[in-house]
């Protein structure tokens, strides 16, 4: 049974076909890249996997269950986390609080146990301490520990991207969706991230789907590459095969 199967999925926005019959499947512990020109439907695909959009037709099967009609929070509970193309952080909260929100599904504390957090032995305090420690480990992994108490609004772009990645990792995802993680990064930062994404797969045992424009990053990282254009799959396979596929070349260069 494949880890994730996207089965003939279609979605329209006011008559505009955003995705038309897209199918593919992703192996566990692989790095799967989605490429395609702007507006080809890559982010729409992520929004469908996340449950932000619902497909008009087709199914998305994750570890044996159809998740295509579930709400985003239920999908998150199954272990799917993501980052956004235009960073969606909780801007008025600190780095720590942002990452703690990634721990949301692993925490239990409700209004009452929260309100009665009297002393460090209370249930809420023990849960907070435990989860703050695991967040600390994620920060260490990404090298953002010194920023823990900084509000994210004041951070530079590259750091905010890392915080967002940290928030997704704090969720301990089985499937991690990264939407253009290297956008706006310098060459050095890109190289760094390349190493980190591999480390995420190996240390966090996550499967990764990547939307990426930088072909260098895609070629170096991916086990499989999927190329889409105007909502349709035009090629799928090993990075080299896809890169030299005539339809891909045409879509990128224009005919």
């Amino acid at each position: 049974m494949p880890f994730l199967t996207v089965d003939n999925i279609s979605v329209n926005f006011r008559g505009v076909k955003a995705l038309a019959g897209v199918s593919f499947s992703v192996e566990e512990h692989s790095i799967f890249s989605v490429i395609g020109p702007n507006g080809s439907g890559k982010t729409t695909l992520f929004n469908l996997i996340n449950g932000i959009y619902k497909p008009d037709r087709g199914r998305i099967v994750f570890q044996g269950t159809d998740i295509s009609r579930l709400s985003p929070d239920r999908i998150a509970r199954r272990g799917i986390a993501r980052t956004f193309q235009n960073i969606e952080l909780f801007s008025r909260a600190s780095v720590m609080d942002n990452l703690l929100l990634g721990r949301h599904i692993h925490m239990r504390c409700g209004v009452f146990s929260g309100a009665f957090m009297w002393g460090r032995r209370s249930r809420a305090a023990r849960e907070e301490i435990e989860n703050r420690e695991s967040v600390e480990a994620v920060m260490e992994f990404l090298g953002i520990s010194p920023l823990r108490d900084h509000p994210v609004v004041n951070l530079p772009y590259g750091k905010r991207k890392l915080v967002e990645l940290g928030r997704a990792l704090a969720l301990e995802p089985r499937l991690l969706l990264l939407d253009e993680p290297t956008a706006g990064m310098s060459a050095d930062e890109k190289k760094d991230l390349d190493v980190r994404i591999r480390a995420i797969r190996d240390q966090y045992k996550a499967t990764i789907i990547l939307i990426e424009h930088d072909m260098g990053v895609v070629m170096g990282l991916s086990d499989t590459v999927l190329a889409i254009d105007q909502g349709r799959v035009i090629a799928e396979g090993k990075p080299r095969e896809v890169q030299s596929h005539p339809d891909v070349v045409k879509a990128y260069l224009g005919s």
């Binding site: 996340n50 449950g51 932000i52 709400s71 985003p72 929070d73 998150a76 509970r77 986390a81 993501r82 956004f84 969606e88 952080l89 909780f90 801007s91 008025r92 909260a93 929100l101 990634g102 949301h104 599904i105 928030r167 969720l171």
Partner: peptide
């Protein structure tokens, strides 16, 4: 701060 991100984080 962000409805969308809140939902996606569970």
């Amino acid at each position: 701060d962000s409805n969308v991100a809140a939902g996606v984080m569970g």
